[in-house]
Simulated scan of single mutants.
Amino acid sequence: MVRLRKKERREETMELKETAISSETVYDGKIIKVQKDRVRLPNGKEALREVVRHQGGVCVCAVDGDLNLFFVRQYRYPFQEAMLELPAGKLDVEGEDAYDGALRELREETGIIAADMMPLGEIYSSVGFCDESIHMYLAVNIEQGKQCLDEDEFINVEKIPLGRAVEMCLKGELKDAKTVACVLKAYIILEQLQREAGRTEAEAHE
């Protein structure tokens, strides 16, 4: 039997880049700016892109010594629902340091003061149409202070055990994307820290 060779096909890698031809600002608000851009595609054709511009934000997972996480519940008008989320917010001014913004948002929304914060990375909230970037942090060695809410903010603070928070993420009970990402990242980091602490303690007793 003669075996036929499959015809070798060379896959060409296309440069995945779109170049702006023109840009029009159609809305310039307090929180977002909306642009309508005409772009040139990799194949040379043109297309329209509607882009929401946002100066970025922060999200903080604060954990106490008993591995409880601190959440905020607030009404989210777009979904007509009171949502449970981690403390978060936008950077107040362009160029504000994300670390400083995270400390500020945590204290304003919950009253919590964190002695230490560990960066958990950055996520893009919705890459198809928005350039918002959210910096996530794990806050430890915390102290409870007093909330300092804006006059148009109405927030309840809730404390939830870490294990229960992870379960809520996996079951879809927590629906806010940044909260889910931050809780699961924090869980992994805290598990690693506990294992390392256990190894260190075991080595000390050898």
Results as ranks from 00 to 15, higher is better:
residue 2 V to G: 03
residue 3 R to T: 08
residue 4 L to M: 06
residue 5 R to H: 06
residue 5 R to I: 09
residue 6 K to G: 10
residue 6 K to H: 07
residue 8 E to F: 07
residue 10 R to A: 10
residue 10 R to W: 07
residue 14 M to D: 02
residue 15 E to K: 06
residue 18 E to P: 00
residue 18 E to T: 09
residue 19 T to M: 03
residue 19 T to V: 12
residue 20 A to K: 04
residue 20 A to Y: 03
residue 21 I to A: 04
residue 22 S to R: 06
residue 22 S to N: 04
residue 24 E to C: 07
residue 25 T to Q: 13
residue 28 D to T: 10
residue 30 K to D: 13
residue 31 I to N: 11
residue 32 I to T: 15
residue 32 I to Y: 13
residue 33 K to E: 15
residue 33 K to M: 10
residue 39 V to M: 04
residue 39 V to I: 12
residue 40 R to Q: 12
residue 41 L to W: 00
residue 41 L to F: 01
residue 42 P to V: 06
residue 42 P to C: 05
residue 46 E to T: 11
residue 47 A to F: 00
residue 50 E to R: 02
residue 52 V to T: 07
residue 54 H to N: 14
residue 58 V to H: 06
residue 59 C to Y: 09
residue 60 V to Q: 07
residue 60 V to F: 05
residue 60 V to N: 04
residue 64 D to K: 06
residue 67 L to I: 01
residue 67 L to M: 14
residue 68 N to T: 01
residue 69 L to M: 15
residue 69 L to W: 10
residue 70 F to K: 05
residue 71 F to L: 03
residue 72 V to Q: 06
residue 72 V to E: 12
residue 73 R to V: 08
residue 74 Q to L: 11
residue 76 R to D: 12
residue 77 Y to F: 12
residue 78 P to V: 01
residue 78 P to G: 04
residue 79 F to W: 06
residue 80 Q to K: 11
residue 82 A to F: 05
residue 83 M to I: 14
residue 85 E to N: 10
residue 86 L to K: 04
residue 90 K to Q: 15
residue 90 K to C: 15
residue 91 L to R: 15
residue 92 D to S: 15
residue 92 D to Q: 15
residue 94 E to N: 11
residue 103 L to D: 01
residue 106 L to M: 06
residue 106 L to H: 03
residue 107 R to D: 08
residue 109 E to W: 02
residue 109 E to S: 11
residue 109 E to Y: 02
residue 109 E to I: 08
residue 110 T to M: 04
residue 110 T to I: 04
residue 111 G to Y: 11
residue 113 I to S: 10
residue 115 A to W: 07
residue 116 D to A: 12
residue 118 M to R: 08
residue 119 P to H: 07
residue 120 L to F: 12
residue 123 I to R: 13
residue 124 Y to V: 15
residue 124 Y to S: 15
residue 127 V to M: 09
residue 128 G to E: 10
residue 128 G to P: 00
residue 131 D to K: 08
residue 135 H to N: 09
residue 135 H to Q: 11
residue 136 M to K: 03
residue 137 Y to C: 09
residue 140 V to I: 13
residue 141 N to A: 10
residue 141 N to C: 08
residue 142 I to D: 06
residue 143 E to N: 13
residue 143 E to P: 01
residue 146 K to H: 14
residue 147 Q to C: 08
residue 149 L to R: 02
residue 149 L to H: 00
residue 150 D to W: 10
residue 151 E to C: 02
residue 151 E to H: 05
residue 151 E to L: 02
residue 152 D to K: 03
residue 152 D to L: 00
residue 152 D to R: 01
residue 156 N to S: 11
residue 158 E to D: 07
residue 161 P to S: 03
residue 163 G to P: 03
residue 164 R to C: 05
residue 164 R to S: 08
residue 166 V to Q: 03
residue 167 E to N: 09
residue 169 C to R: 02
residue 172 G to S: 01
residue 173 E to V: 00
residue 173 E to P: 02
residue 179 T to I: 14
residue 180 V to P: 08
residue 181 A to Q: 14
residue 181 A to D: 12
residue 182 C to E: 07
residue 183 V to S: 09
residue 184 L to N: 06
residue 184 L to D: 02
residue 185 K to I: 06
residue 185 K to S: 14
residue 189 I to G: 00
residue 189 I to E: 10
residue 189 I to Y: 09
residue 192 Q to R: 14
residue 193 L to Q: 13
residue 195 R to F: 14
residue 195 R to K: 15
residue 196 E to S: 11
residue 199 R to Y: 13
residue 203 E to L: 12
residue 204 A to Q: 06
residue 205 H to S: 08
residue 205 H to F: 07
residue 205 H to A: 08
